[in-house]
Design a protein around this nucleic acid. Sequence first.
DNA 1: CTGAAAGCGCTTACAG
DNA 2: CTGAAAGCGCTTACAG
Lengths: 360, 360
Amino acid sequence: MNVEFDRPKRVRLVDIAEKVGVSRRAVSAVLLGTGGNRVTVGEQKAKEIQLVAKSMGYQPNLAARQLVGKRSHTFGLLVASAGDPLRSFLIQHLDEEAVAHGNRTLIGNTVIAPDRFEKTVQLFTNSGVDGVLCAVHSWLPGDRADLLGQHPCTVFYEDPGTPNACFVTVDRRAAIRKATSFLIEKGRERIGLALNVKSRKSQKDRLIGYKEALSQHGHKFTPELVFHASPKHKNAYASHDVDSLKWSFPEEVIDDLIEKLIIGQSADAIIAHDDYWAATLIKRLHRRGVRVPDDVAVVGYLNHYLADFTDPAITTIDLNHLSAATEMVSMLEKMIRGEELPADQRQVLIQPQLIERESA
Amino acid sequence: MNVEFDRPKRVRLVDIAEKVGVSRRAVSAVLLGTGGNRVTVGEQKAKEIQLVAKSMGYQPNLAARQLVGKRSHTFGLLVASAGDPLRSFLIQHLDEEAVAHGNRTLIGNTVIAPDRFEKTVQLFTNSGVDGVLCAVHSWLPGDRADLLGQHPCTVFYEDPGTPNACFVTVDRRAAIRKATSFLIEKGRERIGLALNVKSRKSQKDRLIGYKEALSQHGHKFTPELVFHASPKHKNAYASHDVDSLKWSFPEEVIDDLIEKLIIGQSADAIIAHDDYWAATLIKRLHRRGVRVPDDVAVVGYLNHYLADFTDPAITTIDLNHLSAATEMVSMLEKMIRGEELPADQRQVLIQPQLIERESA
DNA sequence: CTGAAAGCGCTTACAG
DNA sequence: CTGAAAGCGCTTACAG
């Protein structure tokens, strides 16, 4: 059971100090920026210290710095899963932004087990992360209040529903406004809106955007043209099966959608819940001999790379995950540095963009 | 709830020791398993310590343990990008396995800049990771020797080409053998093999598997039925554009492939380089009025969830990333614990599996 | 089993 | 600018 663990001996601060012939404090001040402005080192000495440090390959010991109360420069990143097709690029950009600010990212997949969210938060606490980025879908389980309790410096992607939380989210109203206006300008008359289960707040925002665009163009709102998945639909939950981590096919929902909106209401365009719904919709429409976009135009939501591989390629709303990541990290950095964030800066709205391909 | 400012001071080992009235060493032995077998604590006391620790919410300070030479229980995970469609599920499983063994995962995206691989390795060193998992494609840049120099405990996905390295890889020969046999048994006569640029070793393995299956079934090998992308093809590199991190469409390669194998050689089946090639192939064949699978059967490679969303859905080879992740982490744990790995255990081969859908 | 001490690599308060 | 010292939370070698 005795586990020995040899690490090659690393160069220490004191080694450099001895070599250059200065105090450890001077080295620390030059190399690590400690001491505030109480420590001043001459330019000559500073340069020499830099040189020697480089030649000796000095790498500061993070654990030691952390122990004396310095930042760990580590962020915890909570994700449903790294393979989450809806968020994997957001994850990538979050890590990139974190690194750009001199941090590293501790990733935590949370959908594998029911209490995994909480366990991961605990792990982050043990590791002494400076702050947490939470990219877990807001409708997935996990104790957000506990997270905020352990890590006041947390930024969410999407409103977690906890009061006063900092989060970044896409402007869903603008997203659907753009999609709807685009379709109207393309001459579509009966535009269907296909949404996931009604209970999610996000779905309400989309509906508002839809109505706004209609009224802007002098179109009448027809409630029958709005479709909602119901929890009893198999795979209704955004085609993402939480239990098995498997990606699954929202076929049942889509067939119901086709019956109601296209057969029942003669819709000539559909704004789909996401690109996966759009892909499946295109596939199922073809099976029935309905042509896309000739008979029915389809617009997706997300702009996953999948959108390029379907036939026809999907015209969709890009959610701009890069900007979201930039904003999230910049917000988190501010919080960690202890800057006061006024209430109106605690929630950032990202502007989405319509990407025109072939399906509409 | 007031989570704004004051982070409650964390409970320390000594706090528990004082409360229970025992030595720090006893607490450390019970809670953290230190002291080897030189420290013995009575069952009564041990239980009491556990209870008090739990009631006080004790969480050991990782930085402190690390500083005295203990494992950090942190793995570095090098990836091309978290959004890498070819590897995102591997990444997810690697993190899950790491956590299952009591570790955490520091993720590092490496494709953003030319020297990013090396910088990330450096970051891992600073963080004092116990070992590194490298899931970066072997054909992407990055100094593997430097990585191994800084982190002798490293396990790769795919052979990095450095002597004696530990790695896990899928049995590519078996993969293509299975695909080829499957197609032969389905009655296909002229099976084309579409591969990426010839220079990659991985492509040679696939070719061998293809020949093996042909000879097994008494079929003749026709060199003209093997297609190789050439570096001058746009997007030849596995449809993964390193520079822009954008996913792109291997259209040019696919059109060339169609000309050579299907028009030129009357192939009635194609084993595609990956699911993305397969998806594009299906799309481009449809444009020419060729039906899949009726006229030409298509088999992919990877089993990405994309395979379900194309029309027809792609019959493909599942690379079994879950097993790969399990093996990688178990290997890494052994190395960290200092167990000697004999040469024949330093390379693990994963068995792939054919998943039948609609395209073949 | 115990206490008292040393040490990991760093930062900081203190006295010169 | 400097040195010498204390301390972060832990582990271990040492003496009882």
